[in-house]
Design a protein around this nucleic acid. Structure first.
Length: 1054
RNA sequence: GGGCCAGUAGCUUAGCCAGGUGGAGCGUUCGGCUGAUAACCGGGAGGUCACCGGUUCAAAUCCGGUCUGGCCCA
């Protein structure tokens, strides 16, 4: 690349083809050297604020294709909004706390559980976590910049900064003050390895194999000694069973059944009877009685393991324990009865709480039974399954035993199957403000709409109280202190902590809020003044990012910019964030501030592999952005990413599509490159010619009008958050209109040697088009946009410029539709030519356009000379009906259908292929007579030889390719010109270099025809002399065949 | 097991909300152009519109179900 010496402010020649990586390197350097990013920010300093909020990626990995897509979308909108005249808030963020990082650090240190951490020292562990997160941040910062994303990389918000953590404390305190913080037993997902509660969002579901057992629960005081039959895949929860659930509206049967000489009386749902008895291998059975679930509600049973678990005998004394209840979580599956352990199941717990039942959860944080589990104490719950089954069997209570595979929750980080246990946790009771959540949800606008209406609302409606506490180390400490009396004191800021602390603390700036430092601080209880200790828990990491909209702004430490820009106007994230950031932000903000923290949401999809499958390490189908950048470049990759409908849809990765994007950009590149040498040669100064005053030709006016329409289209699409449509409109304009049409038509004007108004107008037009397009391209492909802008003599970075406005004066809809017609005719004519094998180089006598559309005729009349030139035709005419040849009828179903209903098909068959005469009297079908009206048919016909025919949307085009002397003469002379030009190229001659040509024709007739235009040929090929005769003593010679005629051509330099 | 989204040519997709003989780009193939030339342009071939059923004179489009993939939940 040698075009990096492009002088600012001057049009430069570009000699190379498009090499994305070279362009990107050059532009990167230019941006660095000129401080382009700062310059751009400065240019919009005084504009109205726009608070875009970056969703913080988690600093445990690196950029993948999904995050690259996400940041590219964000960058695209940031650049666009800036150009639209906004001072866009562009601070990136990083989510740096939490269990995932702890797990990674534990892995590095070879730790297996929490006691390893305690032994190692919490302080050192915290330091390691911090280092890990910070290192990753640096790497990710670089990754994102390599995608050409312009954000404030020097100053990201980091959830581990004290001022950020304070934002979370403050909001939690607000929530606390509003009475929405609770402590209580809840059934939570416990990871026995990490020894902590994990959020619903942190549970991943995988297929596992579990025992599948049917168990008898003997009823108390039953005349037939009947037992309830329950089914479970978690035998280990039976020691904690407190009640059995049925559906009151379901029918149940009491049956007497026999196997191996034993008699059992069982109660199961009637629909499940056959299945259960089959599994139990019963030989026969008799239904003793049927009743509804409601009839057995309140019946008592004996706990099947009461002798193994003595605690169950105590619990049996309590009201309501070991009774049958009707709940809404029962269905007629398996047995239609559900064993419920409030200590180990969410539904079980919630219903148990309503019914006033106790919670029994004899399992510790590591998933090991406590002493309350009697004989099972000390055993890991899942390992106890066989013992439980054996004990049940030995008591004769096991109906059947099998195994089943089903989906079960696992810890997302260490993949350990979770255990549901009821433990003490801190909650934000979002269920208390659900109405407000649903109201505030309406205050935000979502793209696409269904993301909010069909998805997010559903999630919010079903949201449960948010368990925000984790029994871990690396996170924001829960700011609650408890005194000896059990009073809670909630601290909201560092300043408040200082003033409330019993010992004197360092200045606010030097106060770190992390564990273990904060654990050592005692505060004075707000209620009784006694010393209070902090609870040991840290926050769920989702609470960190939930506070981003104010915490990233340094609030409450700083009032500005929070007071002036909150809430966020725009957030852009993938669809997995419905349960994540979209939700936690809304939940936290409504709980603390009673208001939505964001106004507009753009939801995009995930990046899938080439087969539409998720990219994952285990599948080994991961494609990294770096790989794609190396192979094709950043701009092609961005262009590819932004070409997808991002509104909620997943994207399939495709190498060939990136390659296609690169080729499209290559066309754009060549389009901008084409006029540069001519402009430079003529010393064209953009500021000297205004397109409004220039002598514009039809195509000039047309391409400028199309520019206005394109700007409008692009802007409309961007305002609707559809960058894919915007980019498509722009690239279509550049390739279809500018490259494939305008540049083709305008070339001869650029080649004119002497200066002319016409040439100046062409320069001005193309300059205007390219200059504005470089700005339009900026949000999508920032590098190549910048390069084009610079090559056109841009004085500042393109990204600091304003979005080009639509110039109504240059808009001419009629002209646009005229040219659309002309181009269609041109295409059809090319098609017609091909059918009679007539090259475009050979003129044709005339082109006949057959159309009844008045617009077509008008367009042709208005632009006759342009069209003749494009068609390479001597004449063009428009007629309503040109051919009188035999015509064949084609039935029109859109008319026949509504008219004849079910008979339309048959009538159509009668009509098809008939001549107009045959249809004059109508057709008969099935004994009925039908009149055939004009609108029911259209006719096709055939054309004479030497006339090519092709259709276009409003009719047909006929090309009369018959030859006469003039046409042959012109054709052969042009054939000759092309061969000589080819030889000039092979000889590597300069464009201006003069030559001498000698041609030896084998065919006299061809010689005569071609030489009739000797001067034309000589001028075209810049020959001082063009003669015929034998070729000898020349610099370069070659044999050719012109159509069927052999010639030998000799060319010599002068 | 439930909710949401998607399934259109070899590939990427438009069309679907407001039903009337399926468009485009890439690839492929044939051809053209030859002062953007390691470029550029045109034509052709290529589609049971995932599958099954329903509504309708008429369904890619509306309705119900199935399958596949994705996200979320249980």
């Amino acid at each position: 690349m040698n075009d990096d010496d492009a002088d600012e402010g001057e049009i430069s020649e570009v000699g190379e083809t498009y090499r994305p990586r070279d362009v990107e390197e050059d532009v990167e350097e230019y941006w660095r050297d000129t401080g382009a990013y700062e310059e751009t920010k400065q240019a919009h300093d005084e504009d109205p604020d726009l608070y875009f909020l970056d969703g913080p990626p988690y600093t445990s990995g690196q950029m993948h294709l999904g995050t690259a897509w996400n940041k590219t979308l964000k960058d695209c909108f940031i650049r666009y909004k800036r150009m639209q005249g906004y001072d866009v808030h562009d601070q990136p963020g990083y989510d740096m706390h939490g269990l995932p990082i702890e797990v990674k650090v534990e892995e590095e240190l070879g730790f297996e559980n929490k006691s390893d951490i305690e032994e190692y020292g919490v302080e050192s562990f915290i330091d390691d976590c911090k280092e890990f997160a910070t290192d990753n941040l640096e790497a990710m910062n670089e990754d994102f910049q390599s995608m050409g994303v312009w954000m404030d990389w020097d100053d990201p918000y980091r959830t581990l900064d004290p001022e950020y953590m304070e934002g979370a404390w403050w909001a939690f305190q607000k929530t606390f003050e509003r009475g929405l913080v609770e402590r209580g037993k809840r059934v939570i997902n416990q990871c026995p390895r990490c020894e902590t509660a994990i959020a619903d969002a942190e549970v991943e579901y995988d297929e596992i194999t579990s025992p599948s057992i049917y168990v008898e629960f003997p009823l108390v005081d039953d005349e037939d000694d009947a037992s309830l039959v329950i089914w479970t895949t978690t035998p280990w929860t039976i020691p904690a069973n407190l009640y059995v659930a049925v559906d009151e509206d379901l029918e149940y049967s009491k049956v007497e059944a026999h196997r191996d000489g034993e008699r059992d009386v069982l109660v199961v749902a009637s629909d499940c009877l056959e299945d259960v008895l089959g599994r139990g291998r019963y030989e026969d059975y008799t239904v003793l009685e049927t009743y509804s679930g409601g009839d057995i509600v309140g019946r008592r049973y004996r706990h099947p393991l009461e002798s193994q678990v003595p605690k169950q005998k105590e619990l049996d004394m309590e009201d309501g324990v070991h009774e049958v209840y009707s709940t809404d979580f029962v269905s007629a599956e398996r047995t239609g009865l559900v064993h419920a352990a409030p200590g180990h199941g969410v539904d079980d717990f919630e219903f148990g709480e309503e019914a006033g039942l106790p919670v029994f959860s004899p399992v510790d944080t590591t998933g090991v039974y406590t002493d309350e589990a009697g004989e099972y104490a000390g055993e890991f719950v899942r390992d106890a399954n066989p013992d439980v089954i054996e004990d049940l069997d030995s008591r004769g209570l096991l109906v059947s035993e099998d195994s089943t595979s089903h989906r079960y929750g696992h810890c997302w980080r260490c993949d350990t199957p979770i255990v549901f246990t009821a433990t003490d946790q801190w909650f934000i009771t979002v269920t208390d403000v659900k109405d407000r959540l649903l109201e505030e949800l309406e205050e935000s606008e979502w793209h696409p709409e269904w993301a909010r209406d069909n998805r997010f609302r559903d999630w919010v409606e079903n949201a449960r109280d948010w368990n925000v506490s984790r029994q871990r180390y690396w996170g924001i400490p829960v700011p609650i202190w408890i005194c000896g009396e059990g009073h809670w004191s909630c601290i909201g800021t560092r300043e408040e902590l200082r003033s409330q602390a019993l010992d004197s603390l360092p200045d606010v700036e030097d106060l770190d809020l992390h564990r273990p430092d904060v654990d050592e601080i005692q505060v004075e209880c707000y209620e009784c003044g006694e010393p209070a200790e902090r609870v040991e828990d840290v926050f769920d990491v989702w609470l960190d990012s939930a506070a981003a909209s104010w915490a990233s702004l340094g609030y409450p430490g700083e009032d500005e910019p929070f007071d002036s820009i909150w809430p966020a106007e725009l957030i852009i994230e993938a669809h997995d964030q419905t349960r994540g950031w979209f939700w936690t932000q809304l939940g936290m903000s409504v709980a603390a501030l009673d208001e939505t923290p964001y106004e507009e949401v753009v939801m995009h999809g995930h990046a899938l592999d080439e087969d539409g499958l998720k990219m994952s390490k285990s599948r080994g189908n991961i494609v990294t952005p770096q790989e794609a950048i190396e192979r094709y470049g950043v701009d092609p990759l961005r262009s590819f990413l932004l070409s997808h409908d991002q509104q909620g849809d997943d994207m399939r990765f495709s190498w060939s599509e990136i390659e296609a994007k690169q080729r499209t950009l290559n066309v754009v590149w060549n389009t901008h490159r084409f006029p540069l040498p001519y402009m430079q040669l003529d010393g064209f100064q953009p500021e000297d010619v205004d397109v409004h005053d220039a002598e514009l030709s039809t195509v000039d006016r047309w391409v400028l009008s199309r520019l206005q329409s394109t700007k409008q289209e692009v802007e409309d699409a961007m305002e609707g958050y559809k960058p894919d449509e915007a980019q498509r409109a722009l690239l279509d304009y550049l390739t279809e209109d500018v490259s494939r049409y305008y540049v083709q038509v305008v070339r001869p004007r650029m080649w004119m040697e002497e200066d002319s108004e016409s040439k100046q107008a062409a320069y001005a037009t193309l300059y205007r088009v390219l200059d504005e397009c470089s700005r339009l391209l900026a949000p999508y492909t920032p590098y190549v946009a910048e390069r084009i802008h610079q090559n056109l003599g841009g004085e500042t970075t393109v990204h600091a410029l304003s979005w080009p406005e639509v110039d109504e004066e240059l808009l001419d809809r009629e002209l646009e539709s005229d040219v659309e017609v002309l181009r269609e005719l041109e295409e059809s004519a090319a098609n017609a030519r091909q059918r009679v094998s007539r090259k475009h180089r050979w003129p044709v006598k005339r082109v006949v356009v057959e159309s009844t559309d008045e617009g077509v005729e008008a367009a042709v009349e208005r632009h006759r000379s342009l069209l003749l030139d494009r068609l390479n035709a001597k004449d063009v005419e428009v007629t309503e009906s040109w051919s009188e040849l035999e015509m064949e009828a084609e039935p029109q179903m859109d008319v026949l259908g509504p008219e004849y209903g079910g008979d339309a098909g048959e009538i159509a068959e009668e009509i098809r292929g008939s001549s107009p005469g045959e249809l004059e009297d109508g057709v008969d079908y099935d004994g009925e007579h039908v009149d055939v009206t004009d609108d029911m048919v259209e006719y096709r016909d055939e054309t004479p030889e030497e006339v090519g025919e092709a259709e276009f949307s409003d009719g047909r085009v006929f090309v009369d390719a018959s030859l006469d002397r003039e046409i042959e003469s012109e054709g052969y002379s042009r054939e000759l010109v092309r061969r000589i030009q080819e030889m000039r190229k092979e000889m590597d001659l300069d464009v201006e270099e003069r030559i001498e040509v000698v041609v030896d024709f084998a065919d006299e007739r061809v010689e005569e025809l071609a030489m009739e235009r000797r001067e034309f040929v000589a001028e075209e090929v810049r020959a001082e002399e063009l003669r015929t005769g034998s070729v000898d003593d020349v610099d370069y010679r070659e044999h050719w065949t012109l159509e069927d005629a052999d010639v030998e051509i000799g060319v010599s330099r002068l």
